[in-house]
Amino acid sequence: MKNMKKSLQAYGTLLALAIIILVFSILRPAAFFTVRNFINISRQISLMVIISIGATLVMSINEFDLSVGSMASLGGVMSALMAVNGLPLPLCFLLPILISLVIGWINGWIVAKFKVLSFITTLGMSTVLSGVIYRLTGGATVFQNIPKGFSWLGTFKIGEIPLLSVIMLAFVVLFGFIMRHTVLGRRLYAIGGNEETSKVAGINVPLYKNIAFALCAVLSCITGMLIASRVGSANTTAGDGYFLSSYAAVFIGCTVSKKGIPNVLGTLVGCAILGILTNGLTMLQMPTYMQDIITGAIIIFAVIMQKLGKGNAN
């Protein structure tokens, strides 16, 4: 009994994922459990995964970045506007990354230097960015005169596999590696575990906070640019919808880790759960409100399972 409880804690979330897949496979065998649909799902979650990796980094140092959504929107808008104004396409994707790096760095700098709650800092930054987007676009979707090549990243397929899925996988591998096997990752987790101890241990805490926020902003910006490239236009609020779901994914992801800390692979699982739910429930032609209720309930359930497991461990 005890062993069962323990494994429920460690693998409960993965088990939930398996059950979800099983249920949909039974209910919609022909449509759901197909290679084609899984390729489809991988593309659908790709954008959420990339932005959620950003949120994972910031949460690993025990901070929050509420500006991921508006950073993504801004990324898409900047890159689309640059494309419209005839900048060479590689620049249209590189310049916004540099700009987002600076914005993220500023977030981190304010949080580390002035010891302002990251919650408040990034909430402010989010509002500033929304203002900047408005200034740039007048609130209108950027669409006119976007060159055809702009959509390549978001729509290209390698055989059957969408480039977006490949990009997502590359980010998962890269940041999974960084968080597990590099000095950077280790120090981020140390800061998240105990900031003062990290300081005493000689870690330059402000520097690493800056890095975490900067990387988070860059990943948000990349997500925004990929959305714009995918749909062929830049909506001024395109990224905003990702804010809550990305944190939901990170929280579910924490439950995959034994230590209960944010981790890239867990975040991927979290996104997969949310993405597969949306996919399967839409296939069942479930009304949207039911989808919301079921998705929300599963998030809460996953977190409760983890807490229960932890209580047992003590």
């Binding site: 909506n235 609020t237 395109a238 949306t278």
Partner: peptide, 13 residues
């Protein structure tokens, strides 16, 4: 927030 992308996902499914 991002109706184009979301509608695309819904219709794909």
């Amino acid at each position: 927030e991002q109706p184009i992308n979301d509608a695309q996902t819904i219709v794909e499914n």
